[in-house]
Each structure stands twice: as C-alpha cells, then as structure tokens.
Design a protein around this nucleic acid. Structure first.
Lengths: 124, 124
DNA sequence: CTCCTGTTTTGAAATCTGTCAAGCTAGAAG
DNA sequence: CTTCTAGCTTGACAGATTTCAAAACAGGAG
C-alpha cells in the first residue's frame, strides 16, 4: 500500500500550469486538476483530508469514529483521496496510517493563488 | 441577475476557519466549504472559472464556443458556479457578463495554505 | 493451525450529476 | 405589434456517486 498504486494521471502536470486566475486553462490541464478539486468536494472527504493534514500521520482507527458512517464507507473515501494523489497510506502491523502528500496539496493551493493584481493589470 | 439570487450558505463562515491543514474541520465548516471545491471539481466548470478569472469580465457568448457542449449545458455549469458564490453575472443589453467574486476565490486559496512548515523545509 | 480485530473489496440500491432537446424570457430592431 | 438573437429553464435519460451489508484480506495472539 505504501507503493504507489496507480499512475495518478501525471500529477506533475499540475505544477506546469499557472494559477487558474492568470490564464485560461486548456482542456488537458483541467482534466488533470479537476479530479483534485472533486476529491475535496465532499464533506466527508474534506473532513478526512483536514484531519489527516492537521497531523503528521493518523490511523484509520482514529478517523472512522469521527463519522456516523460505516467502515467501508470511510475506506472508500480514503481510497478516493489516495487515487487523487492527495494522501498516502502505509500499513504498520494491524493498523493503516494515512498522511498527506504535501506536493499535491501545495500545488492545489498554488492554483488558487491570485498572482499580482486581481483584475486591473494587463497580463501578457 | 446582478442581484444575488440565493443565500449562498453563509459564505462568510468560510473566512472563519483555519486552513484545512491547520486544524481538523468540523462537519459544519466542511458543509460550507465542500460545495466550493465541488463546484471546481468538474473539467468544464474549472475551465469556465479559469476563463472568467483570467479577465475582468467575460460574456457568455465568448465562453460557450470554447466547448463542444450545448448552450444549456454551459448555462447549467455557470449556474453551479454562481450558486457556489464563486462568480457573479450581470445582464447588459443583449449579453450576460460574468466576473469572479474575489472574496470567495481568495478564501478558497486560504483554505489550502500550508500555515507554517511547508513540509519540506525540515524533513520530519 | 484457529480465532480475533482492523481495513479493504465486492455487490447492490438510492440518489445525484452532466448532457441535450425543446420551450421560455429579455432585450434590440424593425 | 413582430421577429431575431442571447441566454436560461424544464424535462428526461445515461452514467456516476454515496452508502451499507457481506465477504475477503492482513496481521497479531493463542
């Protein structure tokens, strides 16, 4: 599980593009980035992400009881987060530990940056 | 249309909470914020958002031809963006102009900020 | 080996979403 | 008034998403 389990749609391509407020995204870039936002576009996943990102690492056994949801459902949401490349999981003995992948997280933040001037300066 | 058309689920509450990597979000905060991410979690909407955010304002007539989609579909996606509070629309004569709502956009960016340690400065 | 606990996978049901065709509304121009 | 164009709404449908129960899997303990 600590080994990467899928290609993650060339996540490095995210780093290639400007903040979305700087220049229009083409279809290809949007196809790479949209799934990241989509992964966070669910209450449960957003809370999971926040719980994971707030600490160095956290066990599924500490994640699950925070919700009124079944274990499989939490596991499913964690999988979505994993497949989006936002978190990483590692089994250590009985428990599985999750931690954030800071690159993906940082790139997502960079996408939302307002570069310099909001709507006045003419960008080339 | 320039008048706000719905309550936008107390968008100000977004400003109230720390970046998601700082402290775990509670269910209430997540319920406010998740729809914003969800709105951007679609290729078409992400491109629309990017096109709108890249310029001071833009006409629907310039948005639609950038996609292989029907007018109603684009209109639907723009409505989602509007209802999320991310953009604003105004009819001027024949055309409808869209522009970004910078507060919402900025707050979304703030949510993804990595507060102190960029997780790379000192390997932990 | 068996048993127990923690986590993931599978399978299925209910709900939500993206899309288009058809129809409607707002404004401009005759 | 009518007609034309730009954009929105409605209704419908295929496909995706969320959820749980049941089963499977991984590792520790007896």
């Amino acid at each position: 599980m600590s080994k990467q389990e899928l290609p993650v749609a060339d996540l490095n391509a995210v780093a290639c593009c400007s903040p979305i407020a700087v220049r229009p995204m083409n279809a290809e870039q949007a196809a790479v980035v949209a799934p990241l936002f989509k992964a966070l576009g669910d209450q449960v996943r957003l809370r999971l992400m926040s719980m994971i990102a707030s600490v160095p690492e956290i066990c599924v056994c500490d994640l699950t009881p925070a919700f009124d949801l079944s274990g499989p459902t939490i596991s499913h949401h964690l999988k979505v987060l994993r497949e989006a490349g936002l978190v990483d999981a590692e089994r250590r003995g009985t428990w599985v530990w999750y931690r954030v992948k800071p690159e993906a997280f940082r790139q997502l933040g960079a996408l939302l940056e307002i570069s310099a001037a909001p709507a006045g300066s003419s960008a080339g």
